[in-house]
């Protein structure tokens, strides 16, 4: 039901055609503000019902590892929010295999279900988008 009404709203409503949006995340979570900013933009822009994917590559893969406890550095741990994305109908999360492996990580180390893809597939994913937002 949600999807059907979402589609109608998009075709006839303010947004026009549904576009493919890719959020590219390449930074570790707490050293800079990029990761949190990206997440906030994703959550806000979810209201526009577009075709959204998230890509995690390079140090961006560190954003979604399990076991983050930020109390000792007195910073908000925003990693649980990635698990809320499903409720926002954002379910396409991609991790680049080479980036993951270079950092000693495995698929089961992530806090959310992701699809692990190689550099070639990641390149194709980027190429197939209407809009790319980099963080």
């Amino acid at each position: 039901m949600t999807e059907a009404t979402g589609g109608i709203e998009m075709e006839e409503g303010v947004g026009g055609k549904v576009k493919k949006f890719l959020y590219v995340n390449r930074k570790a979570p707490y050293g800079t503000i990029y990761a949190l900013e990206s997440l906030e933009v994703v959550l806000i822009a979810a209201a526009f019902d577009q075709d959204v994917s998230l890509a995690f590559l390079d140090d961006g893969v560190y954003q979604i590892v399990k076991g983050q406890h930020t109390k000792p550095i007195d910073v908000k741990n925003f990693s649980p929010a990635y698990r809320a994305l499903e409720g926002y109908d954002i379910e396409k999360l991609f991790v680049e295999k080479e980036s993951m492996e270079a950092r000693g990580l495995k698929e089961e180390d992530f806090i959310v279900p992701v699809k692990v893809i190689g550099t070639q597939e990641m390149t194709d994913l980027m190429q197939s988008q209407d809009v790319i937002l980099s963080f």
Partner: peptide, 15 residues
């Protein structure tokens, strides 16, 4: 408590 964010209205309604 679970997600560390306040949900958007649409998400709240659905949940």
């Amino acid at each position: 408590d679970e997600y560390q964010i306040a949900p958007a209205v649409r998400v709240l309604t659905k949940a």
